[in-house]
Each structure stands twice: as structure tokens, then as C-alpha cells.
Design a protein around this nucleic acid. Structure first.
Lengths: 230, 230
DNA sequence: TCCTAATCCATACGTTGTACGATTATGTAC
DNA sequence: GTACATAATCGTACAACGTATGGATTAGGA
């Protein structure tokens, strides 16, 4: 087989074609556009117009690609710090909102990002600084700050996971919790049924933004109570 | 090739037969013992001493197997209700502890369980009843109960995800957050570094149980504050 | 000019999920 | 009993996957 239109071997000086970054960027685009299952090494190589095996020079295997994507998403997080201009709880909420928004940018990757512990690199650790900054002003002990930050982050993770799970499936959307509860036989979960019915008409559709804000308020109130008890 | 020891075609009346339940049970065992990657249709069929294609008579595809496993885990949850004998917040905490413990039984499945929205079946919805029971006693509006329950569940999910991610990898355990922060250049995240250093020696290893309890206390305190403001 | 390392390509192997059709038993209608 | 639809299993086969191996080509330093 003769090489037509495509040369083998190391590319000439000016024509660098592959790099870890370029690969990850292309991979991110595929995942965002077509879902995580659409990401295969062959497909990835095709969009880069390159032989599949060329990828392995820059990344050891597919798991490394996924880990790289998780890292990329985290690195893309930008948590603006309003500083001492606002009360500590509002400062904390701002950081949380930014964190959630960052994760929302790539719903198809949420699962990968949130579960890849190897992605807990320096990048991620540094991301948490704004949370500590805000909590430090609340009058907590180091241990309390540590626990509070973890709790808040766990909440954001759980929330984002649920949000992403819903947003990720473009097809076959399952009935959400509210409609499902209404379809339930009344004696299976009486209290649940009564409460959900009591929500009224405006509560028919679940609003993720409202849910997140509500969670943030509950958490900051709980943290404030902890601070007061000290 | 001659059939030795195994006949083709429909089994005779008294003969051992396949069923959705038997398949899922075997699948759960494989996942628990060897991880989610060990679960292949061929491997599953082999442990059942059956042809791989036989599985497809009871389940449409592998995704259905995984969804079935998620459902199975949820169905296995048993949230004991201490009733009115204890204060509402302790009642709520008990439900939360049981929920977390249920998810812990199958760390290799946590990812699947927590992300599979199609598993949000009646089984799962009913599981939430104890949370509503407890919250109903706290003096909240229906809307507040609804939001509080979601917040608590999101926290448990996020927490369980982190816990499972750590417990699932038997190999290549990454350094945890604490040791990683200590290895950080001091100027990258000064507050974070200072707080973690202030944790003292006893805080060297992260204790999941303590972390969970701390989160529960923060959340119940926050919910109590919401109730008071009503 | 030669050497080494970088970069990419071609081929190939084992494994995966599962489509398709054949095979054998069961349950029902006559 | 006989005929027939249906249920349950199996055998074969295929396309797609991740990637091991080894070879080709070139850049850049000695």
C-alpha cells in the first residue's frame, strides 16, 4: 500500500499535528456533542485526521483520556471571589454557584468527573480554596471548616449528579419525581403523597435553580448554627 | 459439533430455568466480587452455565442488566423508622444513615446506582417516605419539606459517591486530600493550607463516619433554622 | 555525518455486545 | 391424539472496540 496524501513518520518542523491538549480538546467536543459513549479511540483519531495508534504516543490509554477530560473540566472552573465585601455566607454561596455552573458546562462528563478520584489532582485541591476563604470568616475551628467544606462539596456533587443525569439523556426522558409520586398508590407512601400534593400547581415542574439555592440556604444556616455553638 | 451434556432448545418442565431475577442476582455477585468491569454478558452466562444469548430472552440488553442492578440495590434498602419516640431530627438522621449504609453495601455499583435515572422507579420513590415522615414533624411547609428532603438526599448521594470512589479502587490508591494539601506549594492556596495544617495530628486520616455525621448535623441544624423562621 | 529520540502509521489480536436463525419444549384448540 | 403458536435455549457470526507490536519517517544534537 502506497502512502497517498498522508505521510508516515515524524511530522516536519512546522506541522505539529498532535498533542495531549489537542487530543483532549477534540475528545471534549465529541463528548459534549454526542455523549460519552461516542468517544472511542478510533472516532477520536478520525476527527483529528490521524491514525488511532498515534494517540497512544501522547496518552497511555483510554482511561487516561477520560481522566484528562475530568482534569480539564476542573481546570476550567473559575470561582470568583467577591472578597470581604459581602457576608461570609454570601461569599460561600457564590463559590458554590460557580462550582455548580462549572460542572454544568459538560453534563455528559459529570459522572466521569465526579467519580474519578485520580482527577483529585492539585488542580482540584486548589479549586477548594474559595470555600475555605469564606468559611474562615464564619468563626469556625479548623476541624469545623474542614467538615463544612466537605459537606457543602458533597451536596454540590450530589446535586450536580442528579442534574446531569436528567440533562444528559436527550432521549427517553423518564417521568420526574413529581409526576411519579402522583401516580403512586396512596397507601404506599402516605406522607410523601400528601406533601407532594400540597405543593400546589406551581410546583408541578421541578426547578433546579430553586432547588440549589434552597440547599445552599439550608447549609449556610446550619454552618452558622455551628459557629454560634462554638 | 455435537451437543455433549447440554441440550439446545427449550428446557423440560422440571428443569432448572433462567429468570430475570436469577440473572440479576448472579450479576450482582460478580460486580460485588470483581468490580463492574468484570461484568460481561459472556461471563455472566458462564456463571449461570448457560449460553450468552439465553440472557437476551429475559433482558433486552446489557444496559437493562445494569439498570436492573441499580433497582435491586434500591429495593434492598431498608430504612427503619424509629417513629415519634425520638425527636424529628434524630429520626431524620436515622433514615439518612440507613440510606447511606444501603448504598455502601455495593460500592462497585454506586456509580451506576447514583446516575441511573431510569432507576428512579416506584421503588426509589417509596424509599423516600421516611424522610418525609421525619420532616413533616419539623414544622415546615410542603415546599420546604420537599426542598429539604432533596437537599439531604443530594448530600447523601455526593457523600456516597466520594466514599465509593475511594473504596472501589482496590488498586492504585491515590493520596487523599489531606496528604495532597500538605504537599502543596504554600502560596497556591494559603487559607486551605493553613486550615488543614491546623487540623492537628489526629486529623491525618479522613474518617468517613465522622464526616457523614458532621454533614447530617449541619443539615438538620439548617432545617431547624428554616422551621424557626416560618 | 551519524545517532538517537520523537512522532506517526499499518497490521493484527483478543474481547465485547448482540443480530439472526435453528432447535426443542410447552400450552392450547380442535 | 394432532396441529400449531409461543417460550426458552443454543450456535454461529459480525462489527466495533482497545491496544500490543513493530516498522517507517524525520528532527535535532553530537
Amino acid at each position: 500500500m502506497v502512502n497517498v496524501g498522508k505521510r508516515s513518520g515524524r511530522p516536519r518542523a512546522g506541522e505539529e499535528r498532535l498533542s495531549r491538549e489537542a487530543i483532549l480538546t477534540a475528545a471534549l467536543r465529541i463528548v459534549d456533542d454526542e455523549g460519552i459513549d461516542a468517544l472511542t479511540m478510533r472516532r477520536l483519531a478520525a476527527t483529528l485526521q490521524v491514525n488511532p495508534m498515534s494517540l497512544y504516543h501522547h496518552l497511555p490509554n483510554k482511561a487516561a483520556v477520560l481522566a484528562g477530560l475530568a482534569e480539564l473540566v476542573f481546570a476550567g472552573l473559575e470561582l470568583p471571589d467577591p472578597g470581604d465585601a459581602v457576608p461570609w455566607d454570601e461569599q460561600l454561596k457564590e463559590a458554590a454557584r460557580a462550582y455548580r455552573n462549572g460542572l454544568r458546562q459538560h453534563p455528559n462528563l459529570a459522572l466521569q468527573v465526579l467519580s474519578d478520584t485520580s482527577a483529585v489532582s492539585d488542580v482540584v485541591v486548589v479549586t477548594m480554596e474559595p470555600f475555605y476563604l469564606a468559611l474562615d470568616r464564619a468563626g469556625l475551628s479548623p476541624r469545623q471548616i474542614f467538615e463544612a467544606a466537605n459537606t457543602l462539596i458533597d451536596f454540590i456533587h450530589g446535586f450536580s449528579l442528579g442534574e446531569a443525569s436528567v440533562r444528559a439523556q436527550t432521549f427517553e426522558l423518564a417521568p420526574d419525581l413529581l409526576t411519579r409520586v402522583r401516580a403512586l398508590p396512596a397507601d404506599k407512601a402516605p406522607t410523601l403523597t400528601r406533601i407532594v400534593d400540597g405543593l400546589g400547581v406551581e410546583g408541578l415542574a421541578y426547578d433546579f435553580d430553586d432547588g440549589f439555592e434552597s440547599g445552599l440556604s439550608t447549609l449556610t444556616a446550619g454552618i452558622a448554627a455551628t459557629a454560634r455553638r462554638r
